[in-house]
Nucleic acid binder design. Sequence first.
RNA 1: GCGAAAGUGGCGGAAUUGGCAGACGCGCCGGACUUAGGAUCCGGUAGCCGAAAGGCUAUGGGGGUUCGACUCCCCCCUUUCGCACCA
Length: 838
Amino acid sequence: MPDYKPHTIEQKWQERWHTTRTFEVAEDPAKPKFYCLEMFAYPSGHAHVGHVRNYMIGDVVARTKRMRGFNVLHPFGWDAFGLPAENAAIQNATHPETWTFENIAHMKGQLQRLGISYAWEREIATCRPEYYRWNQWLFLKMLERDLAYRKRSTVNWCPSCQTVLANEQVVDGGCWRCGTPVTIRELEQWFLRITHYADELLEASDRLSGWPDKVLTMQRNWIGRSEGARVKFGDIDVFTTRIDTIFGANFILLAPEHSLVQRWSQEPGVERLADSVQRFQSQDRTGRVTGDIEKEGVDTGRTVLNPFTGRQVPIWVANFVLGEYGTGAVMGVPGHDQRDFEFARKYGLPVTVVIQPDGGRISADRLTEAYSGPGTLADSAEFSGVSADIGLARITAAAEERGIGVRTVQYRLKDWGISRQRYWGTPIPILYCDQCGMVPVPYDDLPVVLPKTAQFSGRGDSPLGQIPEFVNTTCPGCGWPARRETDTMDTFVDSSWYFFRFCDPHNQELPFDPETVAYWGPVDFYSGGVEHAILHLIYSRFFCRVFRDLGMTSLDEPFTRLLTQGMVLKDGQVMSKSKGNVVDPDDMIEKYGADALRLYVMFVAPPEKEIEWTDAGLEGCFRFLARVWRLVDQFSETIGGGGIPGPGDLELNSSEIALRQRTHETIKRVTVDLDQRIHLNTAVSALMELVNELYAFCNQSDCTRIGGGAETSGSVGTVASAGTVAVLKEAIEALVLMLSPFAPHMGEELWEHLGHSGGTVSAGWPQFQETVAQPAEIVVPVQVNGKLRSRLIVAAGTSESALQELALADPQVAKHLEGKTVKKVVVVGGRLVSIVAS
RNA sequence: GCGAAAGUGGCGGAAUUGGCAGACGCGCCGGACUUAGGAUCCGGUAGCCGAAAGGCUAUGGGGGUUCGACUCCCCCCUUUCGCACCA
């Protein structure tokens, strides 16, 4: 018998899968579809085990679904635009395209050596004009529908990456890629109007039952809906969620960026104001947003009328008021807002109490902190005496009636700024003509191709601007000279709809034929890192709705079920090149084979959890596979032939019945674990148990001698009975089939050894019979006063009264009941007997 | 600060609904087979007491509900993650 040698069989099957196009699919209305997708990869160079874990998880799901009769779409591609390629170009004098395609070639090889069952003919790379032309197409469609627009505004700037960042790409005040603190710049930028869908994105999140709560919570927080009102204090519009406290608004606070502040600080004789405003604006942005800096303000010397109290209130500028949220102006209610309270105490501004807590009375001069709880309005003219929530509604209505306020909903979510001052991205298909102004590139002229030659200086101006042949063009409207937009699109545009492109990746007329998405969509199972919770995942939900509103799909949501896989740690740390702790899958494949690697990564922890890499664990999985190999190989001749009757038709002895029961029970467990729970680790352990059971069966029934030494290990012993052959065949075939999503090469090889030529997919997923899966005898624990005292071995289905009798008669139990009276006996049928005595 | 998730042997982790805690694997210990074993097969392995039978204690800590709690409730500790002056 040849030992388990993974390399030859892995190579054999990978070649066969490729030449027979095993995983390529077409729409087939006769079969149920299943779209299985893992987040596509940024081609950074070499994938480490942490990266490929995700693909292995998806592959187990895809292969299982295929065996269960689904028409499975399982594609892969490359998120191929982006900064690292350009940075590498600056450092190594290679072209970003060269760098990218070399990396893709290497990583594709890695994935193929892992045996991931991708439909490679659908592979896409976003940096190809065949792909990014549809970014441009969609951009123009969005422009037509006013979902794309250009405006000058302050934007996040990463000084290291030398480009603008979207709000979603600023993490803790730093750049999501490199962590460099973000600064502010004012630029003309293109924006996509994601806020148009803010409410829908929020509401629909309640229906995403297949998503982790954690991700949904993050998205809801990010959208940050708050209901309130805008109220005019003279010329100043403030946004408040607490209009019920307006009678306590003793001052107005403006953000340093507020247009009035900017205007006033340019007037003569206000040096103190101008200096403070300047200082606030230059304060560390992170600190301003996170609240780490000291709250400061400066009096503008101006006042404005509080429209409800009729009193003049001073206008201050405060560094903690954010220009980008609401109207950049707030009413200061020191009695009922902690920030305003601190501010008022610091600068000696008056504090007024306008809400009295129920059953208590507070006064302004004794307050040590703002009171923000519920209560009854006080000192609020005609509104005094009503509860705060009723007051809120009435005051809002009054403001609307007087034309000085309006109910409104405010979002934290901002429109998505997509302009990037870099080269390696999708050119924005816009021209600027002196005669016609801004002109969209006509659809027929798409794609606007990224020019090959460019200077990669990393200087912070758009490299495309350095290429006259690119910039200078003619206006399609008037024929006069025009200039092209030189910014490129955020690469998150590419990834926001690629899952649709996979349905129809070679379409030259449209991003995709709506029919294909109607068949394949939505993605049934999507897995990837949680770090995309409010980036890629929210953008994709946005784009799905844009396509829907363009009439190209009827889907509201792109992803039905989402799994966020855990990271792989080595020495307690995330793998990274700079830490030097990466595990290269190729090294592990070299040592143990792809099947063992896959099995280990699936077995060591549930997919959502992070795992700590150990070579010893991998070796254990290799040993398990070798154990399966020996088992199957030893029986392949005996059970591999035809004409073996099914075990259901034979008289079986007790150990044969027991093995058969274990087989069916295991099928049931593994099926539930894989199909419903995606508990891949417990599915593997169930298979390990079945293997242990098979070894025990063989040793005990003496049907053959497994192992034992070099000269005996090759022999096939005599098999005692037709029943033994039948139950072994059933068990081993089920084992091989169920193992094959995890260890596909071995699965196919052993299936072939067992005399089957059609492959595991056509064999289908093994079926269990509920009646066979139930054990004939069960163990029923008996507790006395909550302590386990004995175990009864009884036939399954023993009645509760019989169980009670048996339990009370049990000698161990009787011992603990001595001198006591039984107060109560709880019998849980088939589960346990609990006796209470005293 | 607010919110969420988690905390189980030497280690990774099991325990669908409140019902035998520690499945499975790693590691370790022992046996068999062997010239040899770091291969293979078999067995043991939470702690404490005990020769054994058996008993006691154990799921971060402390309370509670229950015949019964890793699981539910309250308080506290630790870790991880998310949010963080959002008016």
